[in-house]
Structures are given as C-alpha cells and as structure tokens.
Amino acid sequence: MERAARVRDYLNGLPSPVDAVVVTEDITDHGLVEDYEIARGAMRDDAPTVVCPGNHGSRPEFRKVLLDHPGRDGRAGPVNQALRVDGLAILLCDSSIPGRHDGHLDDKTIDWLESKLARAAGPVFVGMHRPPIALGLPSVDAIRLNHPERLEQVLRRHDQVKAAMVGHAHTAASALFAGLALVVAPGVVSTLMMPGELVLPEEWSEDDALDFERPPAFTLHVSDGERLVSHTRVVR
C-alpha cells in the first residue's frame, strides 16, 4: 500500500491536476474483500478513477468494494466500465477468466465494446488488463489475452479508437496492435525484468525475475484527440 500511496500522492500533488486515473494493473493478490478495501484506500485520487479486474482478482469482491454493488443478477459476469472525460471516452474491458491467469474477452464483453464504440461521438481509448500480443516476457506472454483477433477486428472497424492501454506486465512497454499504439503500464509494487537483463537459473519462475527494489512507476498520458503521447515516471 505504501508504494501505491506514493504514486497517489504524486498525482494528487501535481500543479496541474490530471483529468482521470486509469488502473490496468493488478491491485490485489488474492481477490479478498480486505485486499480491495486496502487498494481503495490507496487509490483515493482527486481525479475520476476507473479500474479493470486483473488476473489475481475476483469479480464479486471487486464489485462489492469498488463499485458498491454485487451485480444485477447476483452473478460474477464481466466488469466492463466506461468513463467520459472532456469529450473522449475510456472503455475498460474485463479480460479475466475466473480461476485462471490467462485472459479472454467473452461475447458479452465484445458486444459491449462494439455497442459503446458504435455510439461514441469522439475519440476513444480502449483498455484492459492483459496485453493482446507477446512482449518478450515469458511468464507474462504465457498468460496474455487469448484470441486477440476478436479484439483486433472490433478496433479496426472503429476509427475513433486512438490507442489501447493494458497492464499485467509490471514494466512499461509500447508496441502496435490493430494499427494502434499499445501502451503497457509499468508496475507499482514490482518491476518484471526481461530474461536478457538477468542471469536466471535453468529452472526459474516469475518470482526470480521480479525486482521489488526498483521504485514504483506510472505513465502520464497526453492526448489532443487524435494521438496519445505517454510519459513514464518513477516515484522515489
């Protein structure tokens, strides 16, 4: 929590306030109510904040604590969210598969995204937790978004989509997907190092590649409605 609070305080202390805070990374390890309550306290930003579920979360607890409702039908369907800020829309898709670490955009989510994009009058940024492409990080690439072509087909049909934002990788990165900028948010709690940056044992896990000593980081996005410019900052 201390590291997340440092990022929050940095953002809240900026001379020019940000318009919105978009959280695409995991905010819990076990998906417990107590975990989400701690995360909510650490994310008390002065700007509107929107969060998408990660691979360590739980939809019912996410809804109960962060959205203050259990879901209309009492079940744990996808948590898709939209936020409008100064003429642009941020659409966050739930790519989680309950009980698994890899991701998928189910039919409900694809239909929701298609519907929102069809009605969007201005620029749109689409986000989710898992990247739709391989990033050169073996442990993350093994649990990235499945069937990314479903997402690509939707994005290519709508010119108002200007960029895609994801988390999951614990490191800042950028690439192209569906002809758009794909921006990967850095990690707050830890940084995942690339295999070429480390001397790893023959049998290694993600824990061996995680660096908890590097400072927390986040990305500041600036948009003129046509393009997205992203600046990564570390908070010491």
Rank of each mutant, 00 (worst) to 15 (best):
Leu113Tyr: 04
Leu113Asn: 05
Glu114Asp: 15
Glu114Pro: 14
Ser115Cys: 10
Ser115Glu: 11
Ser115Asn: 04
Lys116Tyr: 11
Lys116Asp: 11
Lys116Gly: 08
Leu117Val: 11
Leu117Ser: 02
Ala118Pro: 09
Ala118Phe: 01
Ala118Ser: 12
Arg119Asn: 05
Ala120Asn: 12
Ala121Arg: 01
Gly122Pro: 11
Pro123Arg: 08
Pro123His: 02
Val124Trp: 00
Phe125Met: 09
Phe125Val: 12
Val126Gln: 12
Val126Thr: 02
Val126Cys: 08
Gly127Phe: 08
Gly127Trp: 05
Met128Ser: 13
Met128Thr: 15
His129Gly: 03
His129Val: 00
His129Trp: 05
Arg130His: 06
Arg130Met: 07
Arg130Glu: 14
Arg130Ile: 10
Pro131Ala: 04
Pro131Val: 03
Pro131Ser: 01
Pro131His: 01
Pro132Lys: 14
Pro132His: 04
Pro132Ala: 10
Pro132Val: 05
Ile133Lys: 04
Ile133Ser: 00
Ile133His: 02
Ala134Asp: 15
Ala134Val: 11
Ala134Glu: 12
Leu135Ala: 02
Leu135Ile: 06
Leu135Met: 07
Leu135Asn: 10
Gly136Ala: 07
Leu137Gly: 03
Leu137Phe: 12
Leu137Tyr: 07
Pro138Val: 02
Pro138Glu: 04
Ser139Leu: 12
Ser139Gln: 10
Val140Ala: 01
Val140Asp: 01
Val140Glu: 00
Val140Gly: 03
Ala142Glu: 13
Ala142Thr: 14
Ala142Phe: 14
Ile143Lys: 06
Leu145His: 03
Leu145Arg: 11
Asn146Pro: 09
Asn146Ala: 10
Asn146His: 04
His147Glu: 14
His147Met: 06
His147Val: 15
His147Arg: 07
His147Lys: 13
Pro148Tyr: 03
Glu149Thr: 15
Glu149Ser: 07
Glu149Lys: 15
Arg150Cys: 12
Leu151Thr: 15
Leu151Met: 15
Glu152Ser: 10
Glu152His: 14
